[in-house]
C-alpha cells in the first residue's frame, strides 16, 4: 500500500487581473510525510503564490488541493479547521506587534485550538526552549532582532503542532549573520521532530543539506524537479543552469 501524500496539488492555476501567476495547464505537486520540499526560482515565478494557494490565503482560479486526501478547495470546507494543521512562516515575520512573545504564541493556542490553560503554558515554555528564546517571553517583537523575530514566528507555528509547515522565504529579510540562527531552528524541526516542510528559499546550502526534493519554478510553471544532487550538481535544464549560475555568482 502506498503512503498518502500530506498535500497534493492538481493542475493549480492562478490568474490575477492581468497577470498569470501560475500558468495553465497548472501546477501539480505531491508532498509525502516527513519530506522536505524546497522550491527555488527567481522572483515573480509564482513560488509564493503556489504556497499561499495551498492554504487558500489566495483563492486559486482553477485546480484542486488535497490535504490528507481530502479536497480543501471546495466552498463547503471550513478552511480555518484545515489551517490548524498547516503552519506558515512568512518573509516579513508578521508577529503581532501589540503582543509580547508569549502572548503571540498564546493567541492561536487559546482562540483557535482552545487548549486548557496549563497545556498552553507548557507548550509556550517548550517551544521557546526549542527556538532558544526562553528569556524573551515578555519582550515585544519591536524589541527583538530580525532573526529572533523569525524564530518566534517559527515557535508560534510550531506550538500548534501542525502536520505541515510552509516557509515563505524565511531568511530573505535577514542579513547572513542572522540567517544562520533561523536555519538552525529549521534544521532542528527536520532532524529532531521530523516535520514535513515546504520551503521557498534561495539558500542553496540549506537545500543541499536537508531537501528530499527540489522544485525549480520559472514564469508560473514547474520547470524541473528532482533530488538535490541532480538539481545542483549536474542540472540538465538550460533555464535552471542560468538561474543557478546567477545565484552562485551572488554568494
Amino acid at each position: 500500500m502506498t503512503e498518502q501524500p500530506v498535500i497534493e496539488v492538481r493542475n493549480l492555476t492562478k490568474k490575477f487581473k492581468d497577470f498569470e501567476a501560475l500558468k495553465s495547464p497548472g501546477v501539480s505537486l505531491k508532498v509525502m510525510p516527513k519530506e522536505v520540499v524546497v522550491i527555488i526560482g527567481s522572483s515573480g515565478s509564482g513560488k509564493s503564490t503556489l504556497l499561499r494557494c495551498m492554504n487558500r490565503l489566495i483563492e486559486p482560479t482553477t485546480g484542486q488541493v488535497f490535504f490528507n486526501g481530502e479536497e480543501i478547495t471546495t466552498k463547503e470546507i471550513n478552511i480555518n479547521e484545515v489551517r490548524k494543521s498547516i503552519g506558515m512562516v512568512f518573509q516579513q515575520f508578521n508577529l503581532f506587534m501589540h503582543l509580547t512573545v508569549g502572548a503571540n504564541i498564546r493567541l492561536p493556542l487559546e482562540k483557535v485550538l482552545k487548549l486548557p490553560e496549563d497545556e498552553i503554558k507548557r507548550r509556550i515554555a517548550e517551544v521557546l526552549v526549542t527556538v532558544n528564546l526562553s528569556e524573551k517571553i515578555d519582550a515585544y517583537p519591536g524589541e527583538l532582532s530580525g532573526g529572533q523575530q523569525q524564530r518566534v514566528a517559527i515557535a508560534r507555528v510550531f506550538a500548534m503542532r501542525p502536520k505541515l509547515i510552509f516557509f515563505d522565504e524565511p531568511t530573505s529579510a535577514l542579513d547572513p549573520e542572522l540567517t544562520g540562527e533561523v536555519l538552525s531552528v529549521m534544521k532542528k524541526l527536520v532532524t529532531e521532530f521530523h516535520y514535513t516542510l515546504v520551503v521557498v528559499t534561495h539558500e542553496i546550502p540549506f537545500a543541499k543539506e536537508l531537501a528530499s526534493r527540489v522544485i525549480f519554478m520559472d514564469e508560473g510553471e514547474i520547470i524541473y524537479r528532482g533530488p538535490p544532487g541532480d538539481v545542483f550538481e549536474n542540472p540538465s535544464n538550460e533555464r535552471l543552469k542560468k538561474f543557478l549560475s546567477k545565484i552562485l555568482e551572488m554568494h
Binding site: N55, L57, N80, E81, R83, K84, I86, G87, M88, F90, Q92, N94, L95, F96, M97, H98, L107, P108, K111, V112, A153, R156, V157, M160
Partner: peptide
C-alpha cells in the same frame, strides 16, 4: 500591514477573531 491579517488567517483565526484580537487593538493605538 496586510501581513498581520495574513499571519492571523494562516494560523486559523476567523475573520472576526483577526479583527478583534489582531487588527483593532493595533488600530486603537
Amino acid at each position: 500591514p496586510t501581513g498581520q491579517t495574513e499571519a492571523a488567517r494562516a494560523l486559523g483565526l476567523t475573520q472576526g477573531q483577526t479583527m478583534s484580537y489582531v487588527i483593532l487593538p493595533q488600530t486603537f493605538r
